[in-house]
C-alpha cells in the first residue's frame, strides 16, 4: 500500500508499525512526541516523506484531539488504511495507559518525588529538542516563500507571545496563508 515512489529505508509491516508507535508512546517523556514520530517514521525509516509529514502535522494540529494521536492515525492510515490507523493509535496509547496507572498506584511510595521532578524537568527540556528539529526543518521549508514565513511567524507570535486563542489565530492566519499559496501555485 506504499504508493510513494521514494523507496523506504525499511518497508513497514503492521507489526513494525505497532512496535514503532509503542516505543514512541513509552519513551516520549515530557512531550515532544511529534518530534519522535518525525525521527522514527521520516528520518530513520522513510515510511512517509517530509512533505507528507508536514501536511499531516498541520491537519493533526488543527483538528480536535491530541495532536500526536491524530498524527499517528494519519501515518497509520497512509501505510495500511483503517487497520494501520487503529494499530498506530493503539500502539501509541497502550504503553502510557499502563505506565500512568502504575505511577498513580506507586504515587504514595514515591516520596522522593522531589528529585524525580528535577530529573523529569531535564528530560522534558531535552525532549523539546526533538520538537525543535521538526520546527527547524519546517522553517527552512517555509523560508522559501514570504507568505509562508509570515504565516509561521504570525502563528507563533499570536499563540506563544500574545496568548491569543489558538482557534482565533488559525481562523485568521489560515485563509490568508492558503490564499498566498494559491496565488503562488498559479505561476508556472
Amino acid at each position: 500500500m506504499i504508493e510513494n515512489s521514494a523507496s523506504p529505508v525499511v518497508p513497514p509491516t503492521l507489526l513494525s508499525l505497532f512496535t514503532v508507535f509503542l516505543r514512541i508512546g513509552l519513551f516520549s517523556f515530557g512531550g515532544g512526541l511529534s518530534g519522535w514520530i518525525f525521527r522514527e517514521v521520516v528520518t530513520l525509516r522513510g515510511w512517509i516523506d517530509e512533505d507528507e509529514f508536514m501536511s499531516g502535522l498541520a491537519v493533526a494540529q488543527i483538528l480536535p484531539g491530541a495532536n500526536v494521536a491524530n498524527l499517528s492515525l494519519y501515518i497509520g492510515q497512509k501505510l495500511f488504511g483503517i487497520t494501520g490507523a487503529v494499530v498506530a493509535l493503539v500502539g501509541l496509547l497502550s504503553g502510557p495507559f499502563f505506565v500512568a496507572i502504575a505511577l498513580v498506584s506507586a504515587y504514595s511510595a514515591m516520596t522522593s518525588f522531589d528529585w524525580t521532578e528535577t530529573v523529569m524537568d531535564g528530560v522534558a527540556a531535552s525532549a523539546i529538542g526533538l520538537l525543535l528539529v521538526v520546527a527547524a526543518k519546517g522553517a527552512r521549508r517555509a523560508s522559501r516563500h514570504l507568505g509562508a514565513s509570515i504565516a509561521l511567524i504570525a502563528t507563533f507570535l499570536g499563540v506563544a507571545i500574545f496568548h491569543l486563542s489558538l482557534l482565533l489565530v488559525v481562523a485568521v492566519v489560515a485563509p490568508l496563508s492558503v490564499w498566498a499559496a494559491w496565488q503562488r501555485s498559479a505561476k508556472p
Binding site: S34, S55, Q61, I62, A135, A148, L152, T155, F156, A174
Partner: peptide
C-alpha cells in the same frame, strides 16, 4: 497543504 504547513510549524514552536 502549503498554506497550512507553516501554521503547523508555528504551533509546534508555540
Amino acid at each position: 497543504e502549503q498554506g497550512l504547513a507553516p501554521i503547523g510549524i508555528g504551533l509546534i514552536l508555540a
